Amino acid sequence: MPGKSVVILISGSGSNLQAIIDASKTDASINIVGVLSNRADAYGLQRATDAQIPTAVIDHTLYSDRLSFDQAMMAQIDAWNPDLVVLAGFMRILTSEFVSHYEGRLINIHPSLLPKFKGTQTHARALEAGESEHGCTVHYVTEELDAGAPIIQAATPIVAADTVESLIDKVHKLEHQIYPLAVSWICSERLKSRDDGIALDDELLGPSGFRFIG
């Protein structure tokens, strides 16, 4: 019996996409039904093709505004009838119409320990702030930037020798561990959104979600 239908949105190399594809090979709850990119040259499309997953390209430069682009994406995504939509390095700002359309089934991964360092340049900002640790957060997407309920976080210590490049590398490794885990929890219905918060195996998660130790 197929698992929950998952659509993944990408713009680039698709390393998190690959991590989720790899997880789906042994986790029957994850059924990736489509990969969509706004860039025809995104290497993630090749990853999907290699895994025999349907792909689509919707070039944002062909649309006059964000809403018309998002509406084109929604038409393609809805044709795949997903239970879950996963943003995996999708580098476009989404309209409120798009976000509300997929409310409760749209997730993203952000390279910081939210609520710290919302937005961009998170690695440099963590170093400049003298943080002792840095990491990533999988969260539900809401209209407010990087403010949806956290599902899972993973942290790595910041050491004196760390640079922006070394932090990027360390955080990417954590992303590849926790993003497939979050997708699996949702697809297997272990993770549920309740009126009182997010629960994993019926245990309410804290304000930072589940804390992953790699």
Score class of each variant (00 low, 15 high):
residue 146 D to N: 01
residue 156 T to V: 07
residue 207 P to F: 05
residue 43 Y to H: 12
residue 17 L to Y: 08
residue 153 Q to M: 07
residue 2 P to G: 05
residue 62 L to K: 15
residue 33 V to E: 10
residue 35 V to H: 13
residue 207 P to T: 12
residue 118 K to F: 00
residue 194 R to D: 10
residue 99 V to S: 06
residue 186 I to K: 09
residue 174 L to E: 01
residue 123 H to A: 00
residue 16 N to L: 08
residue 51 A to S: 12
residue 208 S to A: 12
residue 1 M to N: 14
residue 14 G to C: 06
residue 134 H to Y: 04
residue 184 S to R: 15
residue 51 A to L: 08
residue 136 C to M: 01
residue 127 L to C: 01
residue 89 G to I: 00
residue 123 H to W: 00
residue 82 P to D: 10
residue 95 T to Y: 03
residue 93 I to H: 03
residue 105 R to L: 07
residue 147 A to K: 04
residue 191 L to E: 09
residue 64 S to L: 13
residue 137 T to V: 02
residue 18 Q to L: 04
residue 193 S to W: 11
residue 155 A to L: 02
residue 36 L to V: 15
residue 200 L to H: 11
residue 63 Y to I: 05
residue 119 G to N: 09
residue 205 L to D: 06
residue 8 I to H: 05
residue 32 I to F: 09
residue 102 Y to R: 06
residue 39 R to Q: 15
residue 29 S to C: 15
residue 59 D to E: 13
residue 17 L to I: 09
residue 64 S to E: 14
residue 2 P to H: 11
residue 148 G to M: 07
residue 206 G to A: 12
residue 102 Y to W: 14
residue 25 K to R: 15
residue 76 Q to H: 11
residue 168 I to N: 08
residue 195 D to A: 14
residue 203 E to N: 15
residue 16 N to Q: 10
residue 58 I to E: 06
residue 173 K to P: 01
residue 108 N to G: 01
residue 72 A to H: 05
residue 83 D to Q: 11
residue 95 T to A: 03
residue 23 A to I: 05
residue 193 S to K: 14
residue 43 Y to A: 14
residue 67 L to R: 13
residue 106 L to A: 12
residue 144 E to Q: 12
residue 183 V to G: 13
residue 24 S to F: 12
residue 45 L to M: 06
residue 28 A to N: 15
residue 43 Y to L: 14
residue 200 L to A: 13
residue 180 P to D: 10
residue 21 I to F: 08
residue 7 V to L: 06
residue 185 W to E: 02
residue 76 Q to T: 14
residue 55 T to K: 07
residue 169 D to C: 05
residue 192 K to V: 15
residue 209 G to T: 06
residue 79 A to C: 10
residue 49 T to C: 05
residue 151 I to V: 10
residue 171 V to E: 01
residue 23 A to E: 15
residue 57 V to R: 08
residue 101 H to R: 15
residue 185 W to N: 10
residue 184 S to I: 03
residue 44 G to T: 08
residue 112 S to P: 01
residue 172 H to R: 13
residue 169 D to P: 01
